[in-house]
C-alpha cells in the first residue's frame, strides 16, 4: 500500500504543472475570453526574443475569462503580472483598488491600447436573412446571438454599438434608442456568459441567424470553420473597441517581474507584435503593418464611447449597473 502511495506521489509530481511559485521566468497574462488563440501565437515569439536578449527562459501563462471576472480574481489574489483586457473599466477597477497605477493609460501608447476592433456581424452561408445593418437585428424574423452584457465586455460593446446606431437613427432621442435596443435584445435567444460560449452556441448548436462579436473573432471563426461558409457583415456604424493593457504593479513588484512584464506589453507595440495582432484580424496603429494588412480590413465608421456616452463610467452607471437600462430591458421581456 505504501509503495503504491509513493509511486502515486512520484507520478503526480512528474505530471504536475511545473510548480511556478514566484520564480522569475514566468509571468501570467490575465486576458479576455476570446483572446486565446491570439496570445498562444504571441507568447512563444516574445519568449524567444526575451531569451535572446536576456538569456532567461520565460514561460508565459494564460488565463482567459470575462474581464470583469479576471479583475475580481486579481483583487481576490490571482497572481497576474499583466492584464490584457477588452475594456477600460475593468482596468480602472484595478487602478481604484491599487493594483494598477492610477495613470495606467499613459504608460503605453494609444491610451495603453495596442490594437483596436469593433463589433461586427457573422451570418450564415449566403446571408439567408439578408442582414446588412443594426436595423435588421430588430426585425421579428432575425435571431441575434451575443453574450450577456452584464458579464461580457465584448457584449457591452455590442449593446452600446446598437444603442449608438439607434440614437443616430432617432436623431438623439434616447427613448427611441432605448426602444430599439430593447427590440434587438428581445431577439436574442441565448445569453452566454462569455464571448466564446456565444460562438459555440452559434456555430456548434446552430442557434441564431447572426453572431455579433469583435471583428477579429468574427474572422477567426470564419477561418476556423471554413467549410461552413459563414460570411462577414460590417455594419454601417460600430463602436471603437479598445484593448487596454497594464502591468499589475502590486503583483509584479512582489514577484519581481516588472521588467519582463513591461517588455511583454511593449512587445505588443513592436513591429513583430503588431504583425501577429493584425494577422489575427485586430486593427493596429503601426502604419507599416496597417498598410501590409490593408486588404483584410474594410473601411468602417467607428464612434467612441467617450463621444456618444460620455465615457465608460457614465455608460456603466446608466446602462449596465443594477436597475440600469439593461435591467429594465431584461425585466420587460
Amino acid at each position: 500500500m505504501r509503495q503504491i502511495l509513493i509511486l502515486g506521489a512520484a507520478l503526480a509530481l512528474a505530471l504536475s504543472p511545473a510548480s511556478a511559485q514566484d520564480k522569475p521566468g514566468d509571468i501570467l497574462n490575465a486576458s479576455y475570453d476570446v483572446a486565446r488563440e491570439l496570445f498562444q501565437q504571441i507568447n512563444p515569439v516574445f519568449a524567444a526574443e526575451w531569451k535572446a536578449k536576456t538569456g532567461q527562459t520565460l514561460e508565459i501563462k494564460q488565463s482567459h475569462n470575462g474581464t470583469s471576472r479576471q479583475a475580481r480574481s486579481i483583487v481576490e489574489g490571482l497572481q497576474a503580472d499583466v492584464v490584457t483586457f477588452n475594456q477600460a473599466t475593468d482596468v480602472q477597477f484595478l487602478a481604484e483598488k491599487g493594483f494598477v497605477a492610477a495613470d495606467w493609460q499613459t504608460k503605453f501608447g494609444n491610451n495603453a491600447s495596442p490594437f483596436y476592433s469593433f463589433p461586427a456581424f457573422l451570418v450564415r452561408k449566403g446571408n439567408p436573412k439578408n442582414i446588412k445593418d443594426w436595423s435588421d437585428l430588430a426585425r421579428a424574423d432575425v435571431k441575434a446571438v451575443f453574450p450577456n452584457p452584464k458579464t461580457s465586455g465584448n457584449a457591452r460593446y455590442t449593446y452600446l454599438a446598437a444603442y449608438a446606431f439607434g440614437l443616430e437613427q432617432a436623431k438623439g432621442d434616447d427613448a427611441k434608442a432605448q426602444a430599439f435596443v430593447k427590440t434587438v435584445l428581445s431577439n436574442v435567444p441565448v445569453f452566454d456568459t462569455g464571448g466564446r460560449a456565444a460562438t459555440t452556441t452559434f456555430v456548434e448548436r446552430n442557434i441564431g441567424d447572426v453572431l455579433i462579436t469583435f471583428e477579429s473573432e468574427v474572422n477567426g471563426i470564419r477561418r476556423e470553420y471554413g467549410d461552413k461558409g459563414y460570411e462577414i457583415v460590417i455594419p454601417s456604424l460600430s463602436i471603437l473597441g479598445e484593448f487596454p493593457v497594464a502591468v499589475v504593479d502590486r503583483v509584479a513588484a512582489r514577484r519581481n517581474t516588472q521588467d519582463v512584464s513591461r517588455a511583454y506589453l511593449e512587445f505588443l507595440y513592436s513591429e513583430a507584435g503588431q504583425d501577429i495582432l493584425a494577422k489575427n484580424f485586430n486593427r493596429v496603429h503601426n502604419p507599416a503593418v496597417a498598410e501590409k494588412y490593408k486588404a483584410q480590413f474594410p473601411p468602417v465608421r467607428l464612434v467612441k464611447v467617450e463621444d456618444v456616452f460620455g465615457g465608460w463610467e457614465k455608460a456603466t452607471k446608466t446602462h449596465f449597473a443594477e436597475g440600469g437600462v439593461l435591467d429594465q430591458v431584461f425585466v420587460n421581456r
Binding site: 502515486g8 506521489a9 507520478l11 503526480a12 509530481l13 512528474a14 505530471l15 504536475s16 504543472p17
Partner: peptide, 13 residues
C-alpha cells in the same frame, strides 16, 4: 491537457 491530468491527480492524492 496532460498538465490538467497531473493537477487533477495531485489534488485527488
Amino acid at each position: 491537457t496532460l498538465r490538467a491530468v497531473g493537477l487533477t491527480v495531485l489534488v485527488a492524492l
